[in-house]
């Protein structure tokens, strides 16, 4: 690795972009965590957890994705607005899932009777 970053003479001058440099140990912790949870998700896949297998796998995936978003993608160090931008896509995805699945889940109700209204 070459020498240090050259010292920039931008003191007091407004409108200069100041990069936020994340410490190396954060990056190393995140990647270790990601590797460990990859192993965990594979291991958990082989365990008999009843109906919990899918939720656990999803929870691990969401945790891993959050690590990437927060640290590698610097949202953790960004403005609240960026949190909104990063979150909006996932929120809209939730809308798509929820309103699509409510159709498929309730399709059989006519034949079987509504679960919460036993006839």
């Amino acid at each position: 690795m070459s020498a240090h970053a050259p010292d920039h003479s931008h003191q007091g001058e407004h409108g200069q972009h100041e990069p936020h440099i994340v410490p190396m140990r954060v990056y190393f912790s995140v990647i270790s965590c990601l590797f460990i949870f990859t192993a965990i998700t594979v291991a958990v896949g082989f365990l008999e957890l009843g109906p919990l297998n899918t939720p656990v796998a999803l929870a691990i995936a969401i945790f891993k994705a959050s690590l990437v978003v927060l640290f590698f993608m610097h949202v953790r160090y960004n403005t609240p607005l960026m949190w909104v931008f990063a979150g909006s896509g996932f929120f809209w995805l939730l809308i798509l899932f929820a309103l699509t699945m409510q159709d498929y889940v309730s399709r059989g109700w006519d034949d079987q009777g509504i679960p919460f209204l036993i006839q």
Partner: peptide, 20 residues
């Protein structure tokens, strides 16, 4: 974004989804 199913009331979508 919450209302698209009203295009599908007669298509075989579940009636409960239609109500929502």
């Amino acid at each position: 974004f919450l209302v698209w199913g009203h295009h599908m009331f007669t298509t075989g979508q579940s009636i409960y989804a239609g109500m929502v």
